[in-house]
Design a protein around this nucleic acid. Structure first.
Length: 297
DNA sequence: AAGTGAACCTGAAGGC
DNA sequence: TGCCTTCAGGTTCACT
């Protein structure tokens, strides 16, 4: 499921329920996701209050009032949903009512919200590529999983100069460089394809070709920076992209998939005004790339 | 260093 | 209906 916009969408859904809430009870319904759950996972969470919920790239983070901080990743298929403790149906929920999905409800947090309501925060991850780990709360950014991450692509810091600098001298294709979490952290297969389409840049072009010959950022790098920020902003606004697993925490669907220009649109006519090209699918680094050879150069 | 391919795991979709 | 293959939003590791 989840690239940065989906994770941010999930964070925003969990925040009003979890921040200030007390974790009453924790069910770990299997001992591992991608990694084994930490020793005494439930015991270390029970009784604690959630101080704040954050996000770094595609990672969710939670600070507690005491004890370890929590780092969570949704992998390819992880999702959170919020249920009322009395079992009342939450609007928008339907697929998780099927029993085979309940099998994949791997972690359940029973919480009492700041307003005193009892709720369940349920983590579901069929493929189990996601995980939950503890980290030193005072040194969260130094955790091995977070320490090597590149810049957040949502803020003002991402501009043409920065991209030109990061990509200078790199022979790898633009697609690969944008997928490299050590350079820019949070983009994945969908939003890389979409950003490149919006910027009119070929995924096959050498990343280093964006740096201007004089050392200043090129016009292309500036276009790419703007495209990345635009597409992420619009996707967050739309609640992310729901292809198969992604849901908002109330069970409803994100709808940014309807705004895709090229992703999963092989063979369709390029939607760019006046282009008329045909969208092509190629494979780069073992992942599908969708782009328009006519307008992406 | 940079690129490729496989591995992790399950489910959905399509072909026959 | 079933069996088979392919593919999927991520990350990491082993290998050229």
């Amino acid at each position: 499921m989840p690239e940065l916009p989906e994770v941010e969408t999930v964070r925003r859904g969990l925040q009003p329920v979890l921040e200030g809430a007390r974790i009453v009870r924790v069910e770990a319904r299997r001992p591992n996701l991608r990694f084994p759950l930490p020793d005494r996972f439930a015991e270390q969470l029970e009784g604690r209050r959630v101080a704040s919920l954050g996000r770094r790239a595609k990672y969710l983070t939670a600070h507690l009032d005491a004890g370890p901080a929590l780092i969570c990743h949704l992998g390819m298929s992880g999702s959170f949903r919020i249920e009322h403790a009395d079992g009342a149906a939450t609007p928008g929920i339907f697929r998780h009512e099927r029993s085979k999905d309940a099998v994949h409800d791997h972690v359940v947090l029973h919480v009492e919200t700041a307003a005193g309501e009892l709720k369940r925060v349920v983590y579901n991850d069929p493929r189990r590529f996601g995980f939950m780990l503890f980290a030193e709360p005072d040194r969260l950014s130094e955790h091995p999983l977070l320490a090597g991450l590149g810049i957040e692509p949502t803020g003002n810091a991402l501009d043409g100069d920065l991209i030109a600098g990061l990509f200078r001298g790199r022979a790898a294709p633009l697609k690969s460089a944008l997928m490299d979490q050590r350079l820019i952290a949070g983009l994945g297969n969908i939003y890389v394809c979409e950003a490149l389409w919006r910027a009119g840049l070929s995924p096959r072009r050498a990343a280093g070709s964006l740096a201007g010959a004089t050392g200043r950022s090129s016009v292309r790098a500036g276009r790419l920076a703007q495209a990345i920020r635009d597409v992420l902003g619009a996707a967050i606004e739309a609640g992310g992209s729901s292809l198969r697993d992604h849901r908002l925490t109330d069970g409803t669907l994100g709808y940014f998939q309807h705004s895709f220009g090229v992703y999963d649109r092989e063979g369709e006519t390029c939607p760019r005004q006046g282009c008329g090209g045909t969208i092509k699918r190629i494979v780069q680094n073992g992942r599908s790339t969708f782009y328009c050879p006519a307008c992406q150069r």
